[in-house]
């Protein structure tokens, strides 16, 4: 049913990775992505790959869930690889007509491919093990310094969590509106592209009106419950670093050191 759709594909489990503070996971993902761009050789990728596998193992998320995200970027992956393969100048291995495949090209294409796969896997692992709610909390906390330059960090995170709450409700509503219009013989499936776009009007108008009404109601309900922005607000579930989080940070530092030493200096 529509109400069961979870955003960000959270996989419910109780693993070490799931229990980590969201801030640790966000920082770790960030560091991991940067590390991928620091790596210059095969050993570096091996270290990154092993690190990723370790995290997946610890998270208890079945690999098929992780690779499901890969389907969506398959074409992007393919295009990136093809471009790199054919457009990198260097020592030609194969050439026919104007196209040539170079040694450097193969190397670069493989590197880009692996990099992209690791990147997606790493960030999916974060969204799979962190609830959207925790993710917004973590982001809000990490972005706190930006408040000094007047970025409305609290407001943005409040907006995100409200959106997360209302998206399933609005999806269900869209379904009801579509049915109500179909009961009046509306046709959304046939006709030219322009006609099809036009046939969306009877769905969009009621949907927008309803969304505005809900927003209005919600604003009033929040005000009635003493909401007045982030100032002076306490948290029911404040983010507190635990021992595991400290260990995780330590592991992360070791990983980064390994990448720099092995991937850049030692074998370059």
């Amino acid at each position: 049913m529509l109400r069961d759709i979870t955003l960000g594909q959270y996989y419910r489990a109780d693993s070490v990775i799931h229990r980590l503070d969201p801030r640790v996971k966000i920082v770790a993902t960030f560091v991991f992505i940067i590390s991928l761009f620091l790596v210059k050789n095969f050993i570096g990728y091996l270290v990154a790959g092993l690190f990723l596998c370790l995290c997946i193992k610890l998270s208890t998320v079945p690999p098929k869930f992780i690779f499901r995200g890969m389907k969506a970027i398959f074409f992007l992956l393919l295009i990136t690889m093809v471009f790199n393969l054919f457009l990198t100048p260097g020592e030609a291995l194969l050439s026919f007509w104007k196209i040539k495949i170079t040694k450097e090209g193969i190397k670069l294409a493989l590197m880009m491919g692996v990099r992209l796969v690791f990147l997606i896997t790493g960030s999916s692992l974060m969204t799979l093990t962190t609830t959207p709610n925790n993710l917004t909390d973590g982001l809000e906390d990490l972005l706190k310094p930006l408040k000094k330059i007047r970025v409305p960090v609290h407001e943005i995170s409040m907006m995100m969590s409200i959106a997360l709450r209302f998206i399933p409700i609005l999806m269900e509503e869209t379904d009801k509106i579509m049915k109500a219009q179909m009961a009046r013989c509306a046709d959304f499936e046939s006709g030219s592209l322009i006609n099809r776009a036009r046939s969306l009007v009877p769905i969009l108008v009621p949907l927008f009106i309803s969304a505005f009404r809900r927003a209005n109601d919600l604003a009033m309900a929040m005000e009635a419950r003493c909401y007045r922005g982030g100032e002076g607000r306490t948290k029911m579930k404040p983010l507190i670093y635990k021992k595991e989080d400290a260990i995780a940070y330590l592991v992360l530092v070791i990983y980064l050191a390994l990448i720099i030493v092995l991937g850049r200096i030692l074998f370059s």
Binding site: K176, I177, A180, Q181, A183, C185, P202, P206
Partner: peptide, 27 residues
């Protein structure tokens, strides 16, 4: 669907035109 007319619970789910007459014309 023209023969078996179904009116859903909330009129807000089907009204969309700028005036009532046009809206009734939709079906």
């Amino acid at each position: 669907r023209a023969n078996v007319g179904l009116v859903f619970q909330y009129p807000e789910h089907q009204l969309f035109e700028s005036d009532c007459f046009k809206d009734v014309c939709f079906g």
